[in-house]
Structures are given as C-alpha cells and as structure tokens.
Write a protein that binds this DNA or RNA. Structure first.
Lengths: 334, 334
DNA sequence: CCAACGTGTGGCATCGATGCCACATTTGTG
DNA sequence: CACAAATGTGGCATCGATGCCACACGTTGG
C-alpha cells in the first residue's frame, strides 16, 4: 500500500517538493496561482500528509496525551469530552489512556506519551512522580481536578472548598446540626478541599463538628454503602457524599433502610452526574461544570504550548454551582 | 530540549546504532551481553524511543483511531473503555475522537487518522462513506454497534434482534398485549434489529401488533419525553425504550404523570446503564455487555492488523442479557 | 586442515516532510 | 533608469530509527 508523497504532488503540479509543502501545510510564500495548482494536484492524486514524517522533521506533534483514572466514571468521561472538544477545535488529537488510578500504569502511560513526543499532557495525577517526570522531559503538563504537592505543572481545579462550604451551609440553613460527611481521601487537594469547606461552614455557623460524623471510606460504591451503615449509628440528620461514586452507595443504603428522604434524612452529593436528577427524590448536588473543567485544561495547555503564557505556574479554579433539588429538606425534630 | 537518540546510546555502550535498535526494540540477533550493556546505557542517559521516527521508517504505527458519537453517553464511554483496555494490554494507543454523529466531523476525523497512518480504526459509523474511505486507503476498519449497508469492514454488534425479542417476550409473558416501542431510528442495523425483535416476539405469540404503538422519536431525551406523552394516548400497558437516552425521557414523563410503575404501566429499556438500577423501581433492561463489545472490537482489529484472520469479512454478534428488575410487572386489568 | 556454516555486529540508505539558504524574478523608489 | 527591496521558488540536508546486506568471527564436519 503505497501512498502519494509531496514528491508525487510536486511532479503532478510541476513545482518542487518544498513548494508543495509550503503551499499545503506551512505558512510561507506561495503565490495564489501555485497554491491552487498544488491543491488541485494533491486532491487529484489523493495525497494525505504524513504526520509521522512531519513530526519527526519539525520536532512537534499535534497529539496530546490525556491520562485519567476511569472512563466509565461520568466525571472522567465528561472531563475527557471537554478536553477532546477543545483539542479538536484546535486541530489537535487526543490520545486517551486509562490508568485505573494505578501509579505503575500511570508511569507506563507517561513513558509511552514521551515516546510519542507529545507536546503536552493533561493528567488527573495519581502520583507526583508522573507530572514531574513529564516536565523533566520537556513536556507541558496540566493537572486536572487535583493538585499534588510539588508535582509542578499548571492546574485546573474545581473550587472544592467553596462548593463544599456552600453545600454545607445550605444544610445548616435547613436546621441540620449533625451532618455526616462520607469521604474517601483527603490527601489530594480534592478531598482536602471538600473537607475544609465542610469544616469552614461549621465554624462560620458556630457549630462544633463531631469528628465521628466524618466517615472515611474507600473509592467504591459498595464500601461507601457499608460506611454509610456505620455512619447512621452516629444519628446524622443529613449526609453529604464527597463524590458521585460514594453517593451511589449512600443512596442505596438509605433506600434499603426505607428511610424517607428528605423527611427523615437529607442526602446531598458533590459532583453532579445525570442519574442524580433521575432518582426520586432528585439529589441536591454541587455541579463542578466538569465539561468546562476539561475545556479549561485543554485551553490552558494549548496556550502553554504556544508559549502565550508567563513562565509562572498557573492555577485555574472553576467555581462550582449548588443545585438544590428534592433530597434535602428541613432537619427532623429530635 | 534535546533528547538522546540511538546514536548516543550506541556511543555510550560502545556498539553501533543498528545494534542498539536491535537490542532494545526489534527482535533479531543481539548477544545477551550486548543486550544488557545497551539497556544499561539507555537507562543511564535516559533514552526514550521516538515513535515518529520508528513509524516513519517502518511504515506502521501503534496508534488506533476510535471514532464515536458522544463520550458523555455511557454507552459510548463503556465502549471506549473496553477498547482502550484491550489496546493498552497489546501496547497500542487509542486516539479518541467524538464526531457528534455528524457526517462532516466524522470524515474530517477519518482524514486526520489517515494522516497519522494508523493501521486501524474502530468506528460507530454515521455514514458508509467513512469506513469505505478508510478501507480504500488501506486502513483496517471495525464498525462497532451498527452495520451500514455496503460500508465494508468487520463488524461487532449486540444481537439486537434477540435482545429485543427476549425483552418483548418477557412483557408478553406478563400478560401485556399493548406494548409501546419508543425508538429513534430504524435505518441502522441497531434500530432495525431491535424493531425486528419486537415484531418477532409478537408474531411468535400470535399477537397482532398495532402499528400505532411504534412511536418514532429523535435521539434526545426531551423529544423522547414528548413522544412518550403522545404514545400514552394509545393506551399501552407497557413501554420499551430502544436505548438509554430515550429511557430517560420516558421515565421522566411517566413520573411526571404520577403513573405507578409497574402497577399501572411497565417500563423497560434496551441498553443497561448504571442509573437504571438506581431509580425506583429499578428498570428492567437488556444489558449489551458494552465494555465487552468494545474489547471484542479491539481484539478483532488487532487480529486483522496482525493478519491472523481470513480475508473474509467477519461479523461478531455479542449475545445480550435480559435483566429483570422492578419496573416490569403483570399487565393491569382492562 | 579447509570449506561450509551459524551467529552476531556494523555500514549505509531510507522513510516523507520541512527548515534554511541561495537565487530568480518582480516591484518600488530616489 | 539603476539599484534596492520585496516576493516567490528550488536545492539540499536533516529529523531518528531501522531494514537490508556485507562481513568478521568461531564452530563443525568431511
């Protein structure tokens, strides 16, 4: 299977290969007349640019690496969709890799991306090693959704603290004073921020927070369900789940116990995903604008690649939005 | 930013570039001793292969194009996740493009993939032109989820007819004789198959199907909702929605009307997605094994690329599975 | 003891596009 | 009208890895 090259187009159009290259792909001198002739010739013989050759010669690439944990989680899917949309508009391609939140997989993927000579990578980092290694090799990095200490690279985050605070305030405003928080991790900025917002709202309202109401669990609906069961022993009148996966477990447990939401207990979640408005009652949530988060990542990365940004590290914080639905209501009387 | 090349490794290890290439990447003669020395040298100076150079020279690539409609739809996300999983295991990369089911976008993406010299593409085709064009250019194509007439290429499908038939039989078995079908398209094999299965079940049960019960709508939850409203005028005792998006609309409308599911009306859907088991009552569905569908696509494509398959076009049909949940029950008495 | 062989290594051209420079041609200016 | 500047075009080397061939060994068998 032999495809035509610039040489062939040159012969067909009666010009030199250099001219073909200029006329078709790179900007630079080429008279309108020649441009048309070259374009016609290329069209006629079915010429298609070879990205590998171009990338090799010009030491660039229009492929961008995207490293996420799990495409099946709507959060990551939305993020990827936003990224892809923006990249496509800029004539870039997205190389998507699932790392299953496994440091080894993440590192392997990063090495592959290095080999592809991608100019940039967007990653929801598992380990600081990965972004750092990429940067050490001259690849621009944007960390999405979380910030790892000393990982380097630009960052795009949801303003977790503000979102969690607002959500908690909403519940406090409804008279809840024993609010349970279901959370999986607090080492990354994501969980840490949400926890901080939760605490801050208590402080602001002069409420002492019973530490037993903070229920640590693992990133898994089934585990969240068991943890919810334990948490209910602490007699909360409302539960906040720190992300969409944990919310599934919490909801399952509450329904299983036939607890009336929100009459007997309120439920709310960080990270709005579609099913949350389909269940009955629909869940009060914090919408992270995940697709927009993805778009921001891509825009930021492209700006970096084009060297339009000052050297200084940039941190973009996307304001979340509280969506009040039916799952939160006044605290029941004790 | 200058990275080490095979030349540098060769110098470091005291061998020739050819030997480095053989020792590190290609199979071929290289004594264990030299292999180790080369590996050590590469490690030491931080050498990373350049895929562009390799691809150019060897006229291959380990990137695979994946062309889908909408990553935000869990069906496509699962498909992509399955594909990526299998590709990653085989040391291939996934270049993912959303075409928004737009023929022009699809074609543009296909051209980009040609330029990348990918050896294969997995596509949920919008137009037969796209797979055909790719094949004309020597790219292996696997069509996922649907078959377009004369599009060429291998195909991986859910056995839509069998699945729809089984689902319909389940409802007929519950005593339903007026079953509404909410469907968006019947031109592609997907919709056509589901409709055929729906009809076949009626024939098998000696039921005459009232054509007014087949409600055509567009691929959009809001439209599906309006169509459901109209469909209810035909007095169905059960509704089947042909995919997960339409199911959202149908459910919303039934809930809005405060119809008791399944006491007053049963609801079922083709294409199981997570929210369907979270709502109350959980939806009876047909699980397409979407992730496995994706894996199959990737395996098939890789086998093609490795030329392990006979020339003849292959059609893989993945058997779906009926999952009975709470949303379907006995037909109400007339 | 020498031919035939197997094994491991190096040399060189090559994949296709493009950056850079030299040069030809046209246009503008004093 | 001459000379400088602007505008196009072609030639050639180059990006980095690898396929292919030639060849230098050491081994085996007649």
């Amino acid at each position: 299977m032999k495809r035509p090259t610039v040489q062939d187009v040159a012969r067909e159009a009666g010009v030199s290969p250099s001219t073909v290259s200029r006329a078709l792909h790179t900007r630079g001198y080429a008279s309108p007349d020649v441009r048309d002739r070259v374009r016609a010739a290329a069209e006629k013989i079915g010429y298609v640019l070879d990205h590998n050759a171009r990338n090799l010669r010009s030491r660039t690439s229009t492929s961008i690496g995207v490293l996420i944990s799990d495409l099946r989680n709507p959060f990551y899917a939305d993020l990827a969709a936003g990224i892809e949309e923006e990249l496509r508009a800029a004539e870039y391609q997205m190389v998507l890799v699932n790392d299953n939140a496994d440091p080894a997989e993440e590192m392997r993927a990063a090495e592959t991306l290095l080999a592809m000579r991608v100019p940039g990578v967007i990653v929801t980092p598992v380990t600081a090693d990965c972004p750092r290694m990429l940067q050490d090799n001259g690849v621009h990095v944007v960390c999405a959704d979380r910030e790892l200490r000393r990982s380097g690279g630009d960052v795009v985050l949801s303003d977790n603290k503000a979102g969690a605070r607002e959500l908690t305030e909403h519940l406090i405003g409804l008279g809840h004073s024993r609010i349970g928080l279901l959370i999986d991790e607090t080492k990354w900025s994501t969980g840490a921020g949400r926890l901080a917002g939760f605490r801050a709202a208590h402080v602001d309202a002069d409420l002492t927070l019973d530490e037993n109401l903070i229920a640590y669990t693992s990133f898994d609906a089934e585990a969240a369900r068991r943890t919810t069961r334990d948490l209910l022993g602490q007699q909360p009148t409302a539960i906040i789940s720190a992300n969409n996966v944990l919310a599934q477990g919490a909801l399952a447990e509450l329904k299983d116990r036939r607890l009336k939401i929100p009459r007997q207990i309120s439920l709310a979640a960080y990270d709005d995903v579609p099913w949350m408005s389909l269940v009955e009652p629909a869940l009060t949530t914090v919408d992270q604008h995940t697709v927009e988060l993805g778009r921001s990542c891509a825009r930021l990365l492209l700006a970096r690649i084009r060297e339009e940004l000052p050297t200084r590290r940039r941190i973009v914080r996307v304001a979340p939005r509280l969506i009040i639905r039916g799952s939160t209501g006044p605290a029941p009387r004790a």
